[in-house]
Computed example of a mutant assay.
Amino acid sequence: MSTFEFTVTEEQHLTRIDKVLSDLMKDVSRSQIQLWIKDGHVLVNDSATKSNYKTETGDHIYVTVPEAVEIEAIAEDIPLDIVYEDEDVIVVNKPRGMVVHPAPGHPNGTLVNALLYHCTDLPGINGEIRPGIVHRIDKDTSGLLMVAKNDQAHESLVDQLKAKTTKRVYQTIVHGVIHHEHGTVDAPIGRDRRDRQSMAVTDENGREAVTHFTVLERFEHYSYITCQLETGRTHQIRVHMKYIGHPVAGDPKYGPKKTLDINGQALHASVLGFTHPRTGEEMLFEAPMPEDMEKLLKKLQDSR
């Protein structure tokens, strides 16, 4: 456990304490500082405070940094397809069938379990020794995920997602023939009132959801398209494509029972782009679709 002491200067007078500390402790994210304040690890003149406290010249600030603690997920030696890695971020090509986070029913064998084994140098996210999963893709969707290795990277990548500056493109095969070349589905997504395990387009409890799609090829009963996410709601592409009458092939939850022979939905996160949180470099990664989906697409092409 480490302790830091600061004295507020005239330039910092009437500035929020979380802002003051994030400027002083440049290796710590503002969200982490807010958690420390909430948990009583930050004192001003020997008294507990709140994140919105406006500091005064001469205030004495004491910060006690708690030791990082390990989360319950255990490290497991599971092979990973690492597309890119440095001290701040990892880009992983997740296979179909792998759950991202441990959860009831899936305590082991997840991407987090694998990353805990792979990353032996994690400094921690929000005081926990764990990889920072910035966004998720469904168990039976394959493709690219960006993962933060520290607080600063995590905060930057989360902010980029909120600002809609990341690039996330999916390849998918959907039911039916889409006759126009491009389209946008702008429809709010929330929990399905009739089935709490599913999502649906709804105005009642929905949040903004926007998906742009482009048709690449058409077949007798299917279309091969790309979808670019503007937002990142749960099951977004699967729900939006069902909403416009073109559910994803192989989707056991939102698609018809009679579908293409594939183990899980024919949906692959093929392109991922973001700004590197430390260097500011524009990063862009691509991952080829899994072999079974590639074979499925070739079968449709050959039968045309």
Rank of each mutant, 00 (worst) to 15 (best):
R238E: 07
T202V: 02
T166E: 09
G250Y: 00
R207V: 00
Q228L: 01
R191P: 07
H179A: 14
H175K: 09
V174F: 05
I225W: 06
T211W: 02
R233C: 08
T231V: 07
I178Q: 11
G176Y: 11
F219Y: 15
D192W: 01
T211D: 07
K242S: 12
V248N: 02
M199A: 03
T226W: 01
S223K: 03
V248G: 08
P247W: 00
I173S: 04
Q197D: 14
E181W: 01
P188T: 10
I178L: 15
G206T: 06
K164W: 11
A209Y: 02
A200Q: 10
G232F: 00
Q171G: 11
F213I: 05
R233I: 07
Y224S: 09
G176N: 11
L216W: 09
D251C: 04
G245E: 11
L161W: 09
I244D: 09
D195S: 04
R207C: 04
Q228W: 00
V210M: 04
R207P: 03
R207H: 15
Y243V: 06
V174G: 08
I178R: 12
Y170Q: 05
E217C: 01
Y243F: 12
M199R: 12
Y222W: 14
V185R: 03
H235P: 05
D251W: 04
I237D: 08
Y243Q: 07
E181I: 00
A163R: 14
V177P: 10
H221N: 15
D195F: 00
D192K: 00
R196M: 06
R191S: 12
E230D: 13
G206I: 04
N205Y: 01
A163D: 15
V174T: 12
Y170V: 11
T226N: 13
V210C: 07
I225R: 10
I225E: 08
K167D: 14
G232I: 03
V185D: 02
H179D: 15
R207L: 08
V185N: 05
R207W: 00
L216M: 13
H182R: 15
F219N: 14
D203K: 07
G245F: 03
H235K: 04
R218M: 10
F219Q: 12
T226P: 06
V201Q: 06
